[in-house]
């Protein structure tokens, strides 16, 4: 039961010149919970909304450390993310061993983008169903990249991926010019404000469902000895950051437009592509 005639094989173009399987893989990213990334002159941070399958279940990990200078937040299929993050870790180790140098972040991201591209062109494969936000630091400063399973990677000042990430993007687009001069505490606050936009009506950010990944010098509120390398804050250590959030209207700086209509609740049907 196919929606489109050109659905079944990722190597066949539709008459409109599109690869439907590749576009579906981008839909898989949108099914994952949201992640937000932003960067200043000195820091790069990622924030993720963790999901749990129920009251009795733990929350699913959203962030992975790749190396001292690189970390990722994922949205989409966790198992695909593990394959790619293991690959990134190998690349990072290889660079340390062969050149005694932390791998340049852009090359690491390009490497997984190339890996994903092969899957969009070769018979018998499927694209990865996961998108990454990658933060890293090298001698050119802090960076934020988005990786998408279509095989592209771009650098951003601020970006969001995952479910209802358009609402976070709206916040980021309104405020991104301020990010460059923010200190870490303000940068995280902006990130939390953006992440909050992706929540459903009755939900809120808590110390249990929020992860914060940081690269750059430690904030005064962080545990001493945090250093500058990538670290993930979860649980009690982030309660201070959560309390520092401003109420929604104040944060937006204007009366919020009615929230974008929630993505249609997932039916058992495949995602309907726009023509």
């Amino acid at each position: 039961m196919f929606r489109n005639t050109y659905d079944s094989d990722n190597t066949v173009f539709s008459p409109q010149g599109r690869l439907h399987q590749v576009e579906y893989s981008l839909e898989a990213v949108k099914q994952g919970s949201a992640a937000v990334g932003l960067r200043s002159k000195t820091h790069a941070v990622i924030l993720g909304l963790k999901r749990s399958t129920g009251e009795l279940a733990s929350y699913q990990q959203k962030m992975y450390r790749i190396d001292d200078h690189v970390g990722i937040a994922i949205a989409g299929l966790t198992s695909d993310a593990r394959v790619l993050s293991n690959f990134m870790r190998q690349q990072a180790m290889g660079s340390k061993m062969v050149f005694n140098r932390p791998v340049p972040v852009n090359r690491l991201v390009s490497a997984i983008a190339d890996k994903a591209q092969v899957n969009t062109q070769e018979y018998g494969r499927r694209p990865y169903g996961v998108g990454f936000l990658v933060i890293g630091h090298d001698h050119t400063g802090p960076h934020l990249y988005e990786f998408s399973p279509s095989g592209t990677s771009f650098e951003y000042y601020a970006m969001s991926i995952g479910a209802r990430s358009q609402s976070a993007k709206t916040y980021l687009e309104k405020h991104y010019e301020k990010f460059v001069d923010c200190d870490l505490t303000d940068l995280i606050r902006h990130g939390l404000h953006a992440l909050r936009e992706t929540l459903q009506q009755d939900k809120e950010l808590t110390i249990n469902n929020t992860s914060i990944g940081i690269i750059g010098p430690a904030a005064s509120s962080e545990a001493p000895g945090s250093g500058e390398s990538f670290r993930i804050l979860e649980g009690e250590p982030i309660s201070g950051f959560l309390q520092s959030m401003l109420p929604k209207e104040e944060a937006m700086g204007f009366a919020p437009a009615p929230a974008a209509p929630a993505a249609a609740p997932a039916s058992d049907q495949d995602v309907q592509m726009s023509e």
């Binding site: 690959f87 190998q90 690349q91 890996k115």
Partner: peptide, 8 residues
Amino acid sequence: DAFDAYNT
């Protein structure tokens, strides 16, 4: 991955 980084 060390032997076939891009899984070609």
